[in-house]
């Protein structure tokens, strides 16, 4: 049996402290101050959009609708927000879960254009050479495909950590699970990602 140890680096970041510059705004929103809620929604909207686009694709036609559902979910869940993470990460998680559910629905309806961001990502990405851009687009597609096959906890951790760049501690706080649980899920998910990329001839060399 493998013993999961802590990272070797003793300078790992401390657990998330529940200090959030949006907390006062959330309090005002909970007191039904519409202006505060408006500011809050507009502030977290980029995070929600980023989360949704990461799962569906940057130009997927359902991005707006899924983001809208996520924003509504965020507003409705606000009274139950326990401040174990910051509000941006809370919104991110709602966006990720909503997008993953939408992706599942789309695939169930056999709408295989879930990754139609592929070509458009390629066009949008002007910083890399066309070959590099194509490889990166394929990497993104590989991860999105992988999300369809992973268990819920693993794919959630994979998107929040690998795609959105949240730390293990931030992911753990947002998902309300221990950090070691996230590490364990990430270990499995990253290994699956490596295997998925290695199985792709065009990505294997770039790995």
């Amino acid at each position: 049996m493998r013993i999961v140890r802590q990272p070797i680096d003793a300078q790992a970041p401390p657990p998330i402290v529940a200090t959030d510059e949006l907390a006062a705004l959330a309090d005002a929103a909970l007191r039904q101050q519409a202006d505060a809620m408006r500011t809050l929604i507009v502030t977290v909207a980029p995070a929600i959009l980023r989360a949704v686009r990461s799962v569906l694709g940057t130009r997927h036609p359902d991005v707006e609708d899924v983001a809208q559902e996520a924003a509504l979910g965020f507003a409705r869940a606000l009274p139950e927000f326990r401040r174990e993470c910051n509000l941006i990460h809370f919104a991110c998680r709602i966006g990720v879960l909503g997008a993953l559910a939408a992706r599942r629905r789309l695939r169930a309806r056999a709408e295989d254009r879930v990754d139609d961001g592929f070509a458009l990502d390629l066009v949008q990405d002007g910083s890399a050479s066309p070959i590099d851009a194509a490889i990166e687009a394929r990497r993104r597609a590989a991860l999105r495909d992988l999300c369809d096959d992973l268990p819920d906890g693993q794919r959630e951790a994979l998107v929040m950590h690998v795609v959105l760049g949240m730390t293990v501690e931030e992911t753990a706080a947002a998902c309300r699970v221990p950090a070691n649980t996230v590490r364990s899920r990430l270990r499995l998910a990253k290994e699956a990602l490596r295997a998925r990329i290695q199985a792709d001839v065009r990505l294997r060399d770039a790995l």
């Binding site: 940057t58 687009a137 795609v163």
Partner: peptide
Amino acid sequence: TGQAFDRVL
């Protein structure tokens, strides 16, 4: 893969 997402998100 994360860096590939950073470019487009």
